[in-house]
Design a binder for these strands. Structure first.
Lengths: 217, 217
DNA sequence: GGGTAATTTGAGCGATCACTCAAACGTGAT
DNA sequence: ATCACGTTTGAGTGATCGCTCAAATTACCC
């Protein structure tokens, strides 16, 4: 019979994720973690095997939650393209000082991990590719629904969508003004919605955005 | 009369930049720098005042060279939009193992710097904004040349262009296959060229890209 | 209440961190 | 040659790094 652990694993992972996300892997010390988790080094190493393993656990959790949030936003039925566009707009609505006004932890880790820290690098890349697969599946569904042209390339669209999202979150991280961030997100979102092909002569004609003066960048 | 320093400041900065760019600020130790620069700690601290100051010197140099490379590519006369598009394509042509197949050092630093490392964060942001100003100036020139519609928004276009470039370099950093990277770059480049407005009824009609099946993402 | 096993504790491990400084050294002027 | 001066040297600074482990503590079963 195991004794119930007096520490709350979920809260500990929350605190560790917040710390790692904000400061990155290298700049976060065990002292920081001890303070944030309210645990002594021995407990941390009993619960999680090492600093690296703890980081990877946080990253996995973060990625899983990101994926679930995406699916929740895309799975409400209705237009896939509209949902994808709204997902971009969502990321511009974060309050500037908030925890979400930060670049994606997966991307941060990809850029921070050195080649010899292979587990961090491989983990981050795997999660990045998994998100890409989510986006590709969404575009495939859009194509199946007739929102996209039959010869549309979901893989390329997914790459471009992820690029837009990545850059948008870098812009938020930079501290861009809320209105500039919203304008950029809106511009990228309209780009997605402009992919829609007219399904019939009547119903979705309004969804076809008019050719604007600056449609791209 | 000062004695000429026996160390080559330019080569030292080259080596330090390579190291910082690859490993980031925190993961680069003084031991690493000693080995790469061929200098003992005392010399490093005499030549550059601290690890942080050395990093900032490298970052300044990197940003200045990036700016100069951009100006060289955009200043050859001819179409600004074509030059901007080609600049994107250039970044996809880097050989995969090469030193350039890495995310932008400015962006890496923006994402790595913690809020309390204010000099690193501020320096990276300043350089990022300076690059944005370069892009905005290029789009303004394009508008003045009649390549863009008179009501085009250079600031927004610059933000979108920088977003595309940032994401493209993240994709290269990730280790994307050369053909996928080229496809993404080509897609983004065409997006830029599609901004062109027909200048006259005849001459530049061919430059107006035909409306493709998947123009955006 | 006593026994047992799982868990937490926290001092402290060796290694490495960024950095310093007195001494050795090289160079140009005399 | 000799001197004066500025640079390079590299052993060594205290602090902090990630991490360990024997001992104390706690919860559960009988």
């Amino acid at each position: 019979m195991r004794r119930a652990p007096p520490y709350d694993r979920d809260k500990a992972l929350d605190a560790a994720t917040e710390l790692f996300w904000r400061k990155g892997y290298h700049a976060t010390s065990l002292k920081d973690l001890e303070a944030a988790l309210g645990m002594k080094p021995g407990s941390i190493y009993a619960a999680f095997k090492s600093k690296e393993a703890l980081f990877l656990a946080c990253l996995d959790r973060y990625a899983r939650r990101s994926r679930e949030a995406l699916r929740a936003q895309l799975g409400r039925g209705g237009s896939m393209l509209a949902a994808l566009a709204d997902h971009l707009r969502t990321h511009a609505r974060q309050n500037p000082g908030g925890a979400e006004a930060r670049a994606c932890m997966i991307v941060k880790t990809m850029l921070e991990a050195t080649p010899d820290e292979s587990r961090l690098a491989a983990g981050a890349r795997a999660h990045f590719e998994q998100m890409r697969a989510e986006f590709a599946a969404a575009f495939e569904r859009a194509r199946a629904m007739g929102e996209l042209a039959p010869d549309a390339d979901p893989a390329l669209l997914a790459a471009r969508y992820q690029a837009a999202l990545t850059a948008l979150r870098v812009e938020a991280h930079r501290g861009a003004a809320a209105d500039e961030l919203a304008a950029l997100a809106e511009s990228l979102a309209q780009e997605v919605e402009r992919l829609r092909v007219a399904p019939g002569p009547a119903r979705a004609a309004a969804a076809e955005a008019p050719r604007a003066a600056q449609p791209a960048g």
